[in-house]
């Protein structure tokens, strides 16, 4: 594992892997969405609106997965002080925030026909909105500390504290009476017919590949930024 933590080796692998992840992700996502639009059957109660499911659910999972990535990176940063962990946390924040925003947006569009409202201050909806605000806070904080040369441990602590929201989002529909349905999928069990489950799993794979590709691309860009800055500083000192 420590072999991958070497920035030079990481860059070599990332340079090769990024286009593959992005291309395969776009391909798989496109396939899943075409399937969703053409083949997916109407749902017993919801009818055609169920077609938003293979977009809404993966974006929710990746919104939460993005912060889980930040939390793990923050932990590695705080304990092992590894520079790649700082970069990884910052890189995962923007796609995580985008997926969270997409989840809220598609959820709102779905909520209008299914529940009869665009928005309601329900436990699940509110905790997901809090996640979006946490992302925005983290992005601003990480940028500010990087620019001011302050310790990258500050955003890492924020990343760890924010992780408490992830189990709250998950259990919000179990602990509290909510308008949002409880999870349809649990380990080895599905309350979802295969006609809906397969497109969901395939679109989740596609969105995840895109997510991975964007994180690697952003990590490379942030690393290049750090290196360019270091070179400029050396030049300024040498002159």
């Amino acid at each position: 594992m420590h072999g991958f933590a070497n920035p030079t080796r990481f860059l070599r692998i990332a340079r090769w892997l990024t286009p593959w992840l992005l291309a395969s992700g776009l391909l798989v996502t496109a396939g899943a969405l075409i399937w969703t639009l053409t083949v997916l059957p109407a749902e017993r109660l919801q009818g055609e609106t169920v077609r938003i499911l293979p977009v809404h659910v993966p974006t929710a999972w990746l919104g939460m997965g993005g912060w889980t990535t930040i939390a793990i990176a923050s932990f590695v940063e705080l304990v092992w002080r590894h520079p790649l962990a700082t970069i990884a946390g910052r890189a995962a924040a923007v796609p995580g925030a985008v997926f969270t925003a997409l989840c809220l947006l598609t959820g709102s569009i779905w909520g209008r026909p299914a529940w009869g409202t665009w928005w309601i201050w329900d436990g699940r909806l509110t905790s997901m909105l809090v996640l979006l605000f946490l992302y925005i806070g983290y992005i601003v904080l990480a940028q500010a500390t990087a620019r001011e040369g302050a310790s990258s441990r500050v955003p890492a602590i924020f990343g760890l504290i924010g992780a408490i929201n992830i189990p709250i989002i998950h259990y919000s529909v179990i602990w509290w009476y909510s308008i949002h349905q409880p999870p349809s999928l649990s380990v080895g069990q599905s309350a979802m017919a295969p006609a809906f489950l397969w497109p969901l799993l395939i679109s989740t794979l596609g969105f995840s590949l895109i997510f991975g590709g964007v994180v690697l691309a952003r990590m490379r860009a942030l690393l290049a930024d750090v290196q360019a800055e270091a070179r400029l500083r050396r030049k300024a000192l040498g002159a």
Partner: peptide, 17 residues
């Protein structure tokens, strides 16, 4: 004054109906 519907976690194709 207002009614909201709640969908449960099971998803079943309409053909089953």
């Amino acid at each position: 004054d207002n009614l909201l519907a709640k969908h449960d976690e099971s998803y079943v194709p309409r053909e089953l109906e």
